[in-house]
Structures are given as structure tokens and as C-alpha cells.
Write a protein that binds this DNA or RNA. Sequence first.
DNA 1: CCCTGATTCGC
DNA 2: GCGAATCAGG
Length: 174
Amino acid sequence: MSDAVTGWTDERVELLGKLWSEGLSASQIAAALGGGVTRNAVIGKVHRLGLSGRTKGSQPPAPRAAKPRAPSAPGPVQELRPRTPEAPPPEPASATVLVLPPAAVVPAAEPAIPVSERISIMELRETTCRWPLGDPTSADFGFCGGRSVTGLPYCEAHCRIAYQPAAERKRLRA
DNA sequence: CCCTGATTCGC
DNA sequence: GCGAATCAGG
């Protein structure tokens, strides 16, 4: 087993290069890598690898003036990630069970989505949550319509419902 | 508003 | 080396 769950393994770098060359965006690649990395991480790596310049480059990007950025943080306060303290570390999709949208029963913790916020099937975009709400045969049927996690069909809240660790799901099953 | 990549810099 | 924060732009 690889010792580092963190960091870029050869395989991940390889996939990164592959997807990048295929023209996928950094955020899409980040999602493809299991979401453990952000698009910033992907971009940073891409640059470090030296494959930032796309093939069609004819003119060097105008040198952007350096910016002073962070004025230096005075507070010793450590920032916590918006992640859950018990973040599922190494298990990406393989150990994750896909739960299809409810045909009738919703697990629980369903975020309240105002009916007025629902969108029609025609309004679905690549970045809109496709979580179905309501009775498909009814007029009030619609989709969540929230902003989906890039690369995934659902918003963050519905992703939590749709993609659950096998263990957790088994527990809920009881 | 959504998104894109680019860059700097603290770690 | 890594990636968050930020910038600049579409």
C-alpha cells in the first residue's frame, strides 16, 4: 500500500496529465481525482509539472503585475476546513455506494427545498443539481436546481445523500 | 452570477 | 513541494 494518501502519487499525476491534456478543466480533474483535492491544487501541480502552457499557445500571456496578497496574518488562529472532522480520507468512489434518487422514500436529512426554487427539466444545466423533488406525475415535480458540485450531478447537500460510505449506509439501513 | 487558469507565498 | 488565497479575465 502506498504510504501517502496525501500528495501526488504517480498514478494521480498520470491521470492529471491525461485529463489535462484532454482539455478537462482543473475543477473537473479535481472532482475526477476523488474530490480530495481542489482545483487550486490541480492547477498548482499542473504548473509545477510544467505543462501549464496549452499546445495552441502562440503568445506568452501578458506578464501580470505581482500583487501584494495576504498582508500577513496577525492571528495565531488556525483556520479549520469546512470539512467534517470525520472526513472520509482515502476511500473515493470504490468504497462509496451510490444511492439513486428516491423513487419514493428519502433517507433523511433532506434539506428543505422551497417548491418555488425547483426548476424544470428544461432548465437543467451542467451545473444545476439534478436531484428530483416531488411526484414526477404531479405538476409540482421539479429538480433541486441548486449549484451542483462541479463534475457531479448534485449539489453538495444532495451529494451527501447520494454518495454515502458503505458503512454509514449500512448503519442507516437499520 | 457562473466559470476559467495564473500567480504568489506561507507552510 | 504543496495548495489556499488571490487576481484577472470570459
